[in-house]
Each structure stands twice: as C-alpha cells, then as structure tokens.
Amino acid sequence: MRKLNVSKESVRIVVCLGVIALVASLLLAVVNIFTQVDEAAELRKAIGDVYAEAEIEREIDLKDYDDTDGTEVLNAFVATDGAYIILTHVAKADKVGYNAEGVSMLVVIKDGAIIKLSGYSHSETPGLGANAFKDKHLNQYVGLTVDRFDVSDGAQIIAPESGYFTPVKVTSATYTTNAVFLAVKASVRAYVILTGGM
C-alpha cells in the first residue's frame, strides 16, 4: 500500500482552520439558543398592538388559498368580534427600478370595511420610503368598504378613472405607496374569498 505523503504544514493548516470553525460553530449554536425568534409570538404581539379591541379566536388555514401574482397572504385570523386580521406580503410593487420589495402589512377588516392597518415589516429608508407607513398616509384606507377595490384583476394598480379607490401617493415614495396599496388590496381580496364573497 502506498504511503500518503502529508506534510506537517498541511496538517497544521487543516487543524487550525478546523479548530477555528468548530469553536465558531459552537459559539453560534449557543447564541442561537438564546436569540431564536418565535415568529408566531412576534406576530401575535404585533396584532395585539394594532387591534387590541378583541382577542384572536382562530387562525384560518390558507393551504388551499391562491394568491395573486406578486403578493402573498401569509396569515389570516378571525377575532372574537368577527374582525378578520390579515397579514399580506408584497414581493414586488413594480418591475423597474427600486421597487419596494418585502413590504408586509397587517390589515383589519370588519363587517366589509377596513378598520385598521399597519406596516408589519419593511426595509424602507426613514424619511423617504418609510413615510408611506405613517398614519397620515395609512388613514386614507380606514373606513373604505371592500367594494371600493377591484379584487378580480390581481396585483395591479388601478387607474384613477376606473371608479375604484386609488391612493394618494407619498412624494418620493411612489413604489412604496404602491406596495402598501397592493398589500391592502390583496388583504381585501383574501377577506372577500374567505367570507365566501367570491
């Protein structure tokens, strides 16, 4: 059998990198135990902050729910007072340029009208894209009934002349305004479908 020629230096290199990698893995594993994020608990806390009027009664199974292009309904809950709390994620609000990727909105709809909404997560620039999540802008959706949204056409921005609701856009945050609008619209669509309206 041929003897394997391994130099002392090669062994040293392997041992050195191996030891560093092992210690690093152990350290990260220990830290991970303490910093693991319980996403379900985070979501329930966020819902409590947005809609404190009622408790969550049940979560709706979205296994068979078909999303529109570019949006995804992540979770839907029914509150004890009959309100629907829907978390929707927008992957892309526009195909060109900086396009407000990764906007998630919590929308509360009760008796066919939007009663509350809030940005759940986003990575928009403060003072720029993040302005679209301020109450001043979000309040334009509050009180709108679901029939103000054309939920049949998928993830599209509606032209003002269509008769449906079109949002007032935030200066220098047009794509983010679109993302917020698409999230609200997808939430309304989910509400309509889940309540048997479509």
């Binding site: 990198l17 990260l28 830290v31 991970n32 910093t35 693991q36």
Partner: peptide
C-alpha cells in the same frame, strides 16, 4: 482564518439584533 473569525462575530451581531432590535 481571519474571515472565519470575522464572519462568526458578524453573524453573532445579526442574531442579537434580529432578536432584540428587529
């Protein structure tokens, strides 16, 4: 080896910030 060390601490910071400063 340096990159391995730096990456460890960089990941550590990410984990901590994700948990306490989301």
């Amino acid at each position: 080896a340096y990159i391995l060390v730096i990456a460890t601490f960089s990941t550590l910071v990410q984990m901590i910030m994700r948990k306490w400063l989301p």
